[in-house]
């Protein structure tokens, strides 16, 4: 068991190296003061015209429009209008960056990172699966040998697996149950 990591010195370590750390990702793009000038901000209220002390609203939806591109972002994630305005600006800034530089934008980096993590996880789980199967095959071989020995001791000639299979239902009892399970699992 201890020796295992040395048997594949490159695979995992190399792959992990190329996944950027969560705290080393490119920064979130911000709305520059120049962009702020070409934004149209609307607070969507809904309901009747009255307001102020007469109405007690719990939500506040912010809608931002980037006039040059026509991109629209709305946000009402939190109860705070201040927060919603900040979040809407963050989303809009990201969308603008995605439009301007689709290959190098933060979103592109994030997607690539996600894919790499998934691939690395898949690789890990493939390896685990392989180990389980190897372990199972080894146990089966031991069982088979044991069975053969017992049959021999009882004075019967052990049958080969393929012969047993050809004989059909009748011979099933003599077959170790593990064999059937394993062959089914392999399909």
């Amino acid at each position: 068991m201890h020796a295992k990591p040395f048997s594949r010195p490159f695979s995992l370590a190399l792959l992990l190296h190329t996944i950027p750390k969560a705290n080393k990702l490119p920064p979130r793009p911000k709305i520059t003061p120049e962009t702020e000038l070409v934004l149209k901000e609307v607070f969507l209220k809904g309901g009747s015209g009255a307001g102020g002390q007469k109405i007690n609203k719990t939500n506040s939806k912010v809608q931002l429009t980037h006039l040059p591109t026509g991109l629209v972002v709305t946000n009402q994630a939190t109860r705070s209008r201040d927060q919603n305005r900040k979040i809407a600006r963050m989303i809009l800034a990201q969308k603008l960056q995605d439009m301007e530089s689709p290959e190098t934008s933060r979103t592109a980096v994030l997607i690539e990172r996600k894919q790499k993590i998934k691939a690395s996880k898949q690789k890990g789980s493939n390896r685990k699966q392989r180990e389980i199967e190897e372990e199972r095959a080894r146990k089966l071989a031991v069982q088979q040998a044991e069975m053969d020995r017992m049959l021999e001791e009882a004075g019967l000639k052990p049958k080969r697996q393929d012969e047993a299979a050809q004989e059909g239902i009748g011979s099933r009892e003599t077959k170790p149950s593990g064999v059937e399970k394993f062959s089914r699992g392999e399909k």
């Binding site: 307001g51 102020g52 002390q53 209008r81």
Partner: peptide, 10 residues
């Protein structure tokens, strides 16, 4: 006590 309104915040 009256709840603060968004209009006031604005």
């Amino acid at each position: 006590v009256l709840i603060p309104r968004w209009e006031t915040e604005e």
